[in-house]
C-alpha cells in the first residue's frame, strides 16, 4: 500500500494557485500595459503607408532614420547630452549625498533630505516654468544682475544648451541623491576611518573605499537619471527653445503632429534600443550587474 501523499499534492496545488492569484495583477500589468503595447509598437513600426488605410510590411521607417541625418544627429545629440547630464548630476549629487549620509546627524539630516525632495512636490511642468521665470530676459536673475550693476541690459539665459543642462540636472537630482544616500548610509564609518588611519587622504579614501562601496548606488542612480533624461520631453523643449533637438520631441512630433505612427513607433523602438544599449555598456564598464543595482 504505497499511496502517494494526496494531501501534500493538494496543498502544493493550492499554494501554486495562491501564488498565481497574487501574481495576477503583476502579470496583467506586464502583459497588458508593457508587453502588448510594445509588440503593437513594433508591428506598427514595421509597416509602410501605401494609401488611405492601406499598409504594407516594410523597413522604410528604420531606413528613413538612418538615411536622414537630422534624425540621426538628434539621436546622437540626445544620447550625448543625456550622458553628460547624468555625469553632471553624479558630480553634484555625490557630495550632496555624502554630506547628508555621512556628515549630517539626526534631525538636520532628515531636514536636508526633505529639502532635496521639496522641488518634487510640484509637477515637472511647474518646475520648468519656475526656471523660465528665473532665467528669461525679463526674469528674476536678469533683473537682479541689472540691479546689481553687473550687466548693462537685460540678459537672455533661456533657449540654449546650457539651460537645458541646468534644467535636466535639476530635475534629475533627487533620483541620483536618494540611491546614493541609501548606499552611503550603509557604508560603515569605520571603513572610512580605517582608510585614513592606514595613511589615506580625502582623495584616496574616496577613490578606493567610498566610491567602490557606493558603486551599486552610483550605477542605479545613473541608470534612472539617464533614462529619465533621455525620455524627458518638457525640459529640453521648453528651456531649449528654437534649437532644442531632442529625440522624444521627434517621437512626439511624429505621433501627434504628423500622424505618422509608423515612423514614431520606429523612433520609439530606436530610443528603447539606445537606452538599453547605453545602460548595458555602463554596467559593463562599471563592472556592475543589473541585479546588484536594483537589488
Amino acid at each position: 500500500m504505497s499511496t502517494p501523499n494526496p494531501t501534500g499534492s493538494v496543498a502544493g496545488n493550492g499554494l501554486k494557485l495562491g501564488v498565481l492569484l497574487m501574481a495576477t495583477p503583476l502579470l496583467l500589468w506586464l502583459v497588458l500595459l508593457v508587453l502588448l503595447p510594445h509588440i503593437d509598437l513594433l508591428m506598427v513600426s514595421l509597416r509602410e503607408r501605401i494609401s488611405y488605410g492601406k499598409y504594407e510590411f516594410s523597413f522604410v521607417n528604420y531606413i528613413e532614420f538612418f538615411t536622414e541625418p537630422l534624425y540621426w544627429n538628434t539621436y546622437v545629440r540626445t544620447a550625448t547630452m543625456s550622458i553628460l547630464a547624468t555625469a553632471l548630476t553624479l558630480l553634484i549629487g555625490f557630495p550632496v549625498a555624502y554630506y547628508i549620509a555621512k556628515v549630517m546627524r539626526g534631525r538636520a539630516k532628515n531636514v536636508l533630505f526633505l529639502l532635496c525632495l521639496i522641488p518634487f512636490w510640484v509637477s515637472e511642468l511647474v518646475r520648468t516654468f519656475g526656471w523660465m521665470i528665473l532665467l528669461r530676459e525679463s526674469g528674476v536673475v536678469s533683473h537682479f544682475l541689472q540691479w546689481a550693476g553687473l550687466v548693462d541690459g537685460p540678459v537672455e539665459m533661456l533657449y540654449n544648451d546650457v539651460t537645458i543642462m541646468v534644467g535636466l540636472v535639476y530635475t534629475s537630482m533627487l533620483f541620483m541623491v536618494v540611491p546614493l544616500v541609501s548606499v552611503l548610509d550603509s557604508l560603515d564609518d569605520s571603513l572610512i576611518e580605517a582608510g585614513y588611519d592606514l595613511g589615506g587622504n580625502a582623495f584616496t579614501v574616496t577613490r578606493d573605499i567610498v566610491i567602490p562601496h557606493a558603486m551599486p548606488g552610483i550605477a542605479s542612480g545613473c541608470i534612472v537619471v539617464f533614462m529619465l533624461t533621455l525620455g524627458n520631453y518638457l525640459t529640453p523643449t521648453l528651456l531649449g527653445g528654437k534649437s532644442s533637438l531632442w529625440f522624444t520631441d521627434q517621437i512626439y512630433t511624429q505621433f501627434i503632429t504628423r500622424f505618422n505612427w509608423e515612423t514614431g513607433s520606429a523612433f520609439g523602438f530606436l530610443l528603447l534600443v539606445l537606452s538599453s544599449f547605453i545602460v548595458w555598456l555602463g554596467l559593463k564598464l562599471s563592472r556592475q550587474t543589473l541585479s546588484d543595482t536594483v537589488g
Binding site: D188, L191, E193, A194, G195, Y196, L198, G199, D208, I209
Partner: peptide, 18 residues
C-alpha cells in the same frame, strides 16, 4: 590620523570588502 605612527584595529575590523 593618516600621519600618526599608530594604526588601529577597529571593533568590527573594518576590512575593505571591495
Amino acid at each position: 590620523p593618516n600621519r600618526r605612527p599608530v594604526n588601529m584595529v577597529f571593533q568590527h575590523l573594518a576590512l575593505f570588502p571591495m
